[in-house]
Design a protein around this nucleic acid. Structure first.
Lengths: 206, 206
DNA sequence: GTCTATAAAGGGATAGAC
DNA sequence: GTCTATCCCTTTATAGAC
C-alpha cells in the first residue's frame, strides 16, 4: 500500500495527485459544468488522455475530488487541547474557531459546489455532510453532555443543542458569504462569536 | 405601461414571459452552465432566435430570471394579521412559517444557483440577499424592538437577535437540505420550531 | 502510462426570409 | 417579432503511436 503515502514529485503516482489538485482548484472555483477536462489537464500539466487514464469520466473525477476533500482531516474545531479547558472557555474557543472556519474561502466553495450538484448526486452531499458538519456536531454534542453532567448547562437534547450552537454561529454571515457578499471584519467576527456564546449559555442555563 | 400587466396568452408580450418561465425551471434545476439556450427555447416553445431577440445573452437571461424571482412578493413571514397577535404567539407563528418556507424546494434551489454563480456575479447575490433574507430580518428586528419596548424581551441589538432567531430556525436542517439530504417530517419540523422559540425566549429574557 | 491528433456531439450566437 | 438554417467554437471522450 505504498500508493497511499504521498509520492515523491518525480514518482509515478504524482500525476493522479496533480490531476486531483487541478480538479479541486477548478471545480471549486467554477463549478462542475463550467470546468472542462481540457482545463484540468492543462492546470495539472498533463495531457487530457492521461486524465482519462486515471479517471474514466468527468463525473468520476468530480466525485473523487469531493471524496478526497471530505476525507481530509478538517481543522480540529474540537481538538485535544480543548478537552483540558474549563467548560466556558471551551465553548468560547470552539465558537471562535468555528466562525473562522466557516468564513474561510475553501469550506464555502466546497459547500457551493456540493449543493449545486446535490440534485444530481445526493450521495456526494451525504459524504460531505457526514465528514464536515455531521462529524462536528457529534463531537460537540459529547462536550455538551459533559457540561450537562457537570451541572453547568441543562441540555436535554445535546444533538439539537449542538445544531443550535453552530447555527447561531453561522448566523446571517454564512448566507451572506455564500451569495458573495463581503466578509465582516475580524473584530466583528470575534464580537459575534462572543455574543453567541453568551446567548447560548443563557438559553441552556439550568 | 400595459406591458407590466400580465399579458393575455395570445398577446405579444406572452413570449418573454414564457421564456422567463422556462429559464426559471431549467436554471433552478440544472444551474447556469448546464442549462442550454436550446433547452430554454424548447421548453418555452419558441425558437432560439426568439430567445435572443428578447435577451441578448445567456448571462442576461439568467440575471433577468433572478431579478424577476427576487422581485416577487415573498410569502409574508411577518404579515399584517401577525401584527395583531400577542408577542409570543407571534414568534411562534413566524417560526412555523419560516421553517416551512426555507425547507420548500423553490427557495433552496434559488439559493443554490445564486450561491453557485456568486463568485462570478456578486451583484445577483446582493439582489437575492436584499430581497429575501435581508428584507425578513429588517421586519423581524422591528418586531423584536416592540417586544423589547413592551418589556417581554431584552434585546440590545435587534438586528443581531433577528439573525440569531432565523439562524436557529435554519439549524442543521437547512444545510442538510442544501446538500440533498431528506427533509424531516412535518412533526419534526414543528417540534424544532417550538424548541427554538423556547430557547430564543430564554436567551433574550430580561 | 503518456502523448498528439481527432472524432462526434453540443454549445452560444447570428443571418436572412417572412 | 418570429422562424429555419447555419456558423464557429468548445466539449467529452477515444484511437493509435511510443
Amino acid at each position: 500500500m505504498t500508493d497511499t503515502a504521498t509520492p515523491a514529485p518525480g514518482s509515478r503516482a504524482a500525476k493522479p495527485l496533480k490531476i486531483l489538485d487541478a480538479a479541486r482548484e477548478l471545480f471549486l472555483m467554477d463549478g462542475f459544468s463550467a470546468t472542462s477536462m481540457d482545463a484540468v489537464a492543462k492546470v495539472a500539466g498533463v495531457s487530457k488522455a492521461t486524465v482519462y487514464a486515471h479517471f474514466s469520466s468527468k463525473e468520476e473525477l468530480f466525485a473523487a475530488m469531493i471524496n478526497a476533500e471530505c476525507g481530509r482531516t478538517w481543522p480540529e474545531i474540537t481538538s485535544a487541547e480543548i478537552g483540558q479547558m474549563a467548560p466556558i472557555p471551551k465553548l468560547k474557543e470552539v465558537a471562535e474557531r468555528y466562525v473562522r472556519f466557516i468564513t474561510g474561502g475553501y469550506p464555502v466553495s466546497l459547500l457551493r459546489v456540493v449543493s449545486a450538484e446535490a440534485p444530481r448526486n445526493p450521495a456526494l452531499g451525504r459524504i460531505f455532510y457526514d465528514n464536515a458538519p455531521g462529524a462536528g456536531r457529534l463531537k460537540f454534542a459529547e462536550l455538551l453532555r459533559h457540561a450537562d453532567a457537570g451541572g453547568l448547562l441543562r441540555v436535554p437534547d445535546p444533538l439539537h443543542a449542538a445544531d443550535t450552537f453552530f447555527a447561531m454561529l453561522r448566523g446571517d454571515i454564512h448566507i451572506r458569504i455564500l451569495v458573495g457578499m463581503p466578509l465582516p471584519s475580524e473584530a466583528e467576527l470575534t464580537a459575534h462569536a462572543r455574543e453567541v456564546v453568551d446567548r447560548f449559555l443563557k438559553a441552556y442555563r439550568p
